[in-house]
Design a protein around this nucleic acid. Structure first.
Lengths: 337, 337
DNA sequence: TTGTATGCGTTATCAC
DNA sequence: GTGATAACGCATACAA
């Protein structure tokens, strides 16, 4: 069903139908109504490919996600969902591309085939060749997380350094003197993964400022590792009275360890961290945490990208989100010792 | 960069470039090489919209997901990732549409705008108007889960009834006489959600066959509800010695309850269920469970859809997956009583 | 207020 | 083995 058929049935020319739909020139009420009746009857919608070809834009955004082989974290998945929904609100579709980082066919297809008007790049690495590729293609893009050299790119990120520091300060205010950081995995740290590095940096700086004793211990992103982590902590660092965590995936294990070892929280051990709200509220006791706003991040990212698409010459913008820390039940005064 | 520019630089006609690329007619080795050189130099790729317009197909699949407001389960998310990857393997892109069920703009755009060659419909309800819409539009589709009347549709699903029944039989073989089913939420049951209903049916039938006492208790899809569920079970049904679960999201709460109440598993209580492997292996003790193969489901679904796209007249196919139950550490002989 | 004609970038048919 | 050209469906400049 195409516009010519609608025109024929309504007894007008194709351009009249087109204008009636776009409203870019006035069409008499009667003809407009006649056209609308035909459209409603046969359920016509403009062919997306023809429109994209003519207009030079696809009304589609590309979202580059990590490949399925790397299990996506809850936060990443929440972000994907929120991007799709934010795009839908703007009447845009989202094309997904699973890409490991090395140039892959799906990524190339989207970029050089002009399948999308702009790209959201998730899980960006400190050095990421896809950024160069997108820049070279002249395709607007926004990165989630930022590269080592964030100039000339628009990005949105979570201020892990600041949030971890705030957690440390909160714990220090409660009298804790020896604090551990439950960080992401050693592999991610080695690979130069931004959030893990910035958590480390923010922790180190805050610990220094407050003259505390800080112990940073990486942990693989899974429950079993979280449980093991707690065991190691209790055995090798019995003086630690508070923990700051940025590792959501390890939390079920942390929880299990707390139950199994009978650790009183916050009596014996205070815990504060960075986590999605439902993780924090699902923890027992409920976790004092900076609630990462995955849903808002999606809308913000889309908003930033739409801005770049509309005015590519616009100066780049950065959004470093630092949600407030929600005080819940997992932090309390340090034990008298 | 378009095909005309390539032709100009290579000193040939546009059709020759097109044929050199598609191989649909022979091109002399020299010209072919010259063309390839130009293409490599400037990184040309055919414009997707022009190609789609001309060929009448988009090389894109639509994936309809539940809206972000309903938090997607781990299994659903795994499925999305696996679909995207399976599609990428076939050089196809995936367009996401968040749709609640009532007709929404995103869904309509994809369907009537001919944005995709076929659609995968997730989280289908027993009565689902989107099926009618797709059929009317003449767009090939495959549903994940099946409708009340599954005739004339191709679908793929998990055999919850069969798997739950096998769990019950396994537990019965171990001497358990009173078994509880940890089902999905009352809301989902009320809404006619297939998996919850079929779990219920399979449970009831197996319990009947073995002459057991069966107690079906729904549970909201979250950790807190899982913990509460276990408390209620211990209080009101102290004679239950085994549990069958199909509620992944409640498992962290079940785990916490087990630790907190000091329930010995499998000494006091055996647990068998249906869960993704990483959930089963993350549980303590590791869970005897039918491992839902989310990754394979994605490839199978894509395969089924590609078949329908290729030959729409082909008879419909159904795939009811029943993965074997992996024996782990959470099931054992019934306590002597 | 409406109709005619053109071009977006491709593929495929026809002609050489 | 290669080139000219039509057509896919739409939006819009131009004409009336």
């Amino acid at each position: 069903m195409n516009i010519g058929e609608i025109a024929r049935r309504a007894g007008v020319s194709r351009s009249t139908v087109s204008y009636a739909l776009s409203g870019r020139r006035s069409v008499s009420p009667e003809t407009k109504q006649r056209i609308q009746a035909v459209i409603d009857e046969i359920g016509y919608r403009p062919n997306a490919a023809a429109r994209a070809l003519k207009e030079g834009r696809t009304r589609t955004l590309g979202l580059v996600i990590p490949p399925a082989s790397l299990r996506l974290t809850d936060m990443q998945l929440g972000f994907v969902a929120s991007v799709v929904e934010a795009a839908a609100r703007a009447d845009l579709d989202v094309l997904l591309s699973p890409s490991g980082g090395d140039h892959d066919r799906s990524f190339e297809r989207i970029v050089s085939g002009r399948r999308v008007d702009g790209v959201l790049l998730m899980e960006i690495r400190l050095e990421d060749e896809r950024v160069g590729r997108l820049r070279q293609a002249g395709l607007p893009f926004v990165t989630i997380g930022h590269t080592a050299d964030p100039h000339g790119t628009s990005w949105i990120d979570v201020d892990y350094a600041g949030l971890v520091a705030r957690c440390v300060h909160h714990l220090a205010d409660l009298g804790h003197r020896t604090i551990a950081l439950l960080n992401r995995s050693p592999e991610l740290l080695a690979a130069g993964y931004g959030p893990a590095h910035r958590a480390q940096a923010g922790f180190a700086e805050a610990v220094r400022q407050r003259g505390l004793s800080g112990i940073e211990l990486p942990c693989a992103d899974d429950p079993a590792a979280g449980e093991e982590w707690l065991e190691q902590l209790r055995e090798h660092h019995p003086d630690v009275t508070a923990v700051t965590t940025v590792n959501e995936a390890a939390m079920p294990g942390l929880q299990r360890g707390i139950e199994r070892l009978g650790v009183a929280v916050p009596g014996e051990l205070s815990i504060a961290g960075v986590a999605a709200r439902h993780w924090a509220e699902g923890f027992r006791p409920q976790l004092t945490a900076a609630d990462v706003p995955a849903l808002e991040m999606g809308s913000h990212a889309v908003e930033l990208l739409l801005e770049r698409i509309a005015t590519p010459t616009h100066p780049h913008r950065h959004l470093l989100l630092a949600p407030p820390i929600s005080l819940r039940d997992s932090t309390g005064p340090a034990r008298p010792d």
